[in-house]
């Protein structure tokens, strides 16, 4: 790894540590929305908010080195922001993807800072 790349990696770890609470908050809001969806009680404003959060995660999880996290978030985004009712099979998929996002956060944390990931486990 070149010196600039080492510098960049160090800076990325710092950014991850500062923004991890916000990212976790977004993941939690999505999980809450999907839970309400399973109960058929998801209001449209929360659905839109969760779709927006999924869009943000789609744009940044890959930048933190986890492209599958971005793909997962993008699938959630497209389903929540679509102007269509969500079918029961899609609700199951959304539940699975929301759970997957939590795992992604742990995996990014472990790759960025193994000690910090234990603190949050």
């Amino acid at each position: 790894m070149s010196a600039p790349q080492t510098q960049l990696a160090s800076g990325m770890t710092d950014i991850w540590q500062r923004y991890r609470p916000l990212i976790e908050e977004r993941v939690a809001q999505i999980a809450d929305a999907v839970h309400l969806l399973t109960l058929n009680q998801l209001p449209s404003d929360k659905r839109h908010e969760a779709g927006g959060n999924a869009h943000k995660l789609a744009g940044n999880l890959g930048t933190f080195g986890h492209p599958t996290g971005s793909e997962c978030a993008r699938t959630i985004e497209l389903k929540l922001l679509a102007d269509a009712p969500i079918a029961p099979t899609e609700v199951e998929e959304l539940s699975r993807l929301a759970a997957q996002l939590r795992i992604v956060i742990q995996e990014i944390a472990a790759s960025m800072d193994p000690a910090a990931s234990l603190d949050h486990a």
Partner: peptide
């Protein structure tokens, strides 16, 4: 608008792009 992405892009362009 996203602070984390803006910071990462800035660092990337400064450190790697020069």
């Amino acid at each position: 608008y996203e602070d984390d992405i803006r910071e990462i892009a800035q660092m990337s362009l400064e450190e790697i792009g020069g």
